[in-house]
């Protein structure tokens, strides 16, 4: 338990630093930008309380916001992603639910499960974020395209990162 807690606290700071110093500066085609920090929301344990999940999401978002000069934007998107996470987990749950002591990682549920679950959550987060950022449905498809392309990029980074941490 303590180990999982420390891991998540370290992860919290790592994703923030990586996002601010590395991923905010990656620009494919000037339009696609990975929001890698969602990784934290993906990897939080199953048994975290729903309210705690919302709170972690909000704090994560607001910290990213402060340092990217986008007050409220990431906080809103992260809170939204945190809110839909329990539902998404339910969709992909094994027949008898998640066993206690397991964590949402590749080592427990396999690559295919992880990619499916991550993709849906990342998409939810990115679509919310990109539409809020432009605050208009004008140019709907161009925004949607940016959101989807960025989601795929984020998903790739998130999946690859799994092979570097928690190799186990």
């Amino acid at each position: 338990m303590i180990r999982v807690l420390t891991q998540n606290i370290i992860l919290f700071f790592t994703v923030i630093l990586l996002q601010l110093f590395v991923f905010n500066h990656i620009q494919l085609n000037g339009l696609i930008i990975p929001y890698f920090y969602v990784l934290l929301l993906l990897l939080l344990p199953f048994d975290i309380s729903k309210s705690m999940l919302l709170f972690v999401g909000f704090v994560l978002g607001i910290i990213i916001d402060i340092f990217s000069f986008t007050p409220g934007l990431h906080a809103a998107a992260c809170t939204f992603a945190a809110a839909v996470r329990p539902t998404i987990l339910e969709w992909f749950a094994p027949r008898d639910g998640y066993e206690s002591g397991t964590l949402p990682r590749i080592s427990y549920f396999g690559l295919a499960w992880f990619i499916k679950y991550s993709f849906v959550l990342i998409m939810a987060h990115h679509i919310f974020l990109f539409f809020l950022e432009v605050s208009t449905f004008h140019g709907f498809f161009s925004t949607l395209f940016r959101a989807i392309a960025s989601s795929i990029f984020t998903l790739t980074l998130v999946t690859v990162s799994q092979f570097f941490i928690f190799r186990k």
């Binding site: 999401g57 909000f58 809103a76």
Partner: peptide, 26 residues
């Protein structure tokens, strides 16, 4: 509590976002 907390946090975030939406940052 879950829905209420969600609405509360989301409203705080959106108010921040809308208030600071001008190019003149706060």
């Amino acid at each position: 509590q879950f829905v209420l907390l969600f609405l509360l946090l989301e409203i705080i975030a959106l108010v921040l976002f809308v208030q600071n939406n001008g190019y003149q940052k706060i």
